[in-house]
């Protein structure tokens, strides 16, 4: 790719991302009352989406072959245990990620 082509590609990524983020606001402008059903969706969706994002992060996990998703499962349990025990998200995320990296690079490599 030439530099100009690469710049066009970056602009396309940026535009497509912005479209997905702005779509709801374009469909339901601030001047008009938002349909009640959409307001209700806005209230219940965040909690469902967080769960969906966890699954999204794990979407390429191989369960049927070695190591059967063991690094993912163990690291998630570690993150949850640390977070619930110490109420410290920073600690849980950092230790969990380093543990996961060690597992996929060394232990289960």
């Amino acid at each position: 790719m030439t530099t100009l082509e690469a710049i066009i590609m970056v602009a396309v990524f940026a535009a497509a991302t912005f479209i997905t983020r702005a779509l709801a606001f374009a469909l339901f402008p601030a001047g008009k009352p938002t349909p009640k059903f959409v307001v209700y969706l806005g209230r219940v969706l965040p909690f469902a989406i967080t769960a969906m994002l966890v699954v999204y992060c794990l979407k390429n996990t191989v369960i049927l072959e070695n190591p059967h998703g063991a690094p993912e499962l163990l690291a998630i349990l570690l993150v949850a245990a640390l977070f619930l025990a110490f109420k410290n998200s920073l600690l849980a995320i950092a230790v969990g990620t380093v543990a996961y990296m060690l597992m996929v690079q060394v232990l289960f490599a």
């Binding site: 396309v12 990524f13 497509a16 709801a24 606001f25 938002t34 959409v38 806005g42």
Partner: peptide, 23 residues
């Protein structure tokens, strides 16, 4: 690139729906 990005980011439409009232 445009179509793939739309698909990868489709979930963001929901965030907008949740933030309509606040914004």
């Amino acid at each position: 690139a445009f179509l793939v990005t739309l698909m990868v980011n489709a979930r963001h439409v929901f965030y907008g729906v949740s933030m309509l009232e606040r914004f």
